[in-house]
Amino acid sequence: MSILLSNISKNFGQFAALHDIDLEIPEGELVALLGPSGCGKTTLLRIIAGLEQADKGKIFLDGDDKTDLHVSQRGIGFVFQHYALFRHMTVFDNVAFGMRVKDKKLRPSETEIAKKTHALLELVQFDWLHNRFPDQLSGGQRQRIGLARALAVEPSVLLLDEPFGALDASVRKDLRQWLRNLHHELNITSIFVTHDQEEAMEVASQVVVLNKGRIKQQGSPAEIYDYPANEFVSKFIGQTNEFTLEHYTVDWFKHIGLPISAESKIAHVRPHDIEIVKTANNDTPITLKDWQHLGALIWIELTKNLPNGKPKLVYVEMPNEQFKRLQLNRGDKVDLKVRHAHWFN
């Protein structure tokens, strides 16, 4: 089911959580709402779910206006950050809940409910634990049950609030992959909230970057990374070096061409878009300070003394092989060549 948000605004007292959000999500996508904490991403998710009412704006699911529809009528599946499992019910009863509270006319029979519940528990690889209570489960297990419970009502949209936020790093890695595969299998339009850019890039087919209640950019992970629309996105996603274009840096950009009005420009350069050239020229004395092995890549720290006397750090990333070929030592003088830069005002 496609989702369309038009002009959504929300204030909490004086605090404006969301300003005029317009967002279109085509059917079947797996979308990440990404942003720093307090950017409004969870509020937006809750508004789509109907757990929160927007002050202004409309929500369309498959073209139908659902703005004023109560959460219990909206047909969404919501997976809560801390899972919100019903702790007085077994895993089985948790998953069956959504089917059991349906109106008599629509409610499946107990045998059908049991069949479907077991099927869902198998889907989340959990059927063997169906008699346990939530408190007897690990975080990752609870997360899967939360998901199975949300899927039981056959939602047209699946919403997940920080689905991996409360989990250990190792469990998180596994669950991400699993969620991706599950999405491929079910193909339900899904939105998840995260503050972890790596998670967003790895799992989502579309990323929506939010900051201070506004959408900064929407696109595929590759688009967001390779063509950041603004300074915020460029800095928030991945590593970046920030250069103010001044006389001593101009040389580094020469061969890729400078923007026309060079004066007020700021360049963002990814560490892997910088090439290091060995030089004997002491006029551009950039010094190799240190490096770290990251396996296949080398992370290099360079310093340059600015005219104001302060040192500026520049980060460069290059393949191990290439680094070996350069035969660099700490304290070597080097020159830089930028391969690719993003220009912002």
């Binding site: 779910a49 757990l51 109560h70 019903f86 509270v101």
Partner: peptide, 22 residues
């Protein structure tokens, strides 16, 4: 926290059912 109640509502439970079951 009201999260459990919100979860019940999001699964389609009515107000009374949410109260009595959760």
């Amino acid at each position: 926290c009201s999260e459990e109640e919100e979860a019940a509502l999001s699964l389609g439970a009515s107000g009374w059912k949410t109260f009595f079951l959760i």
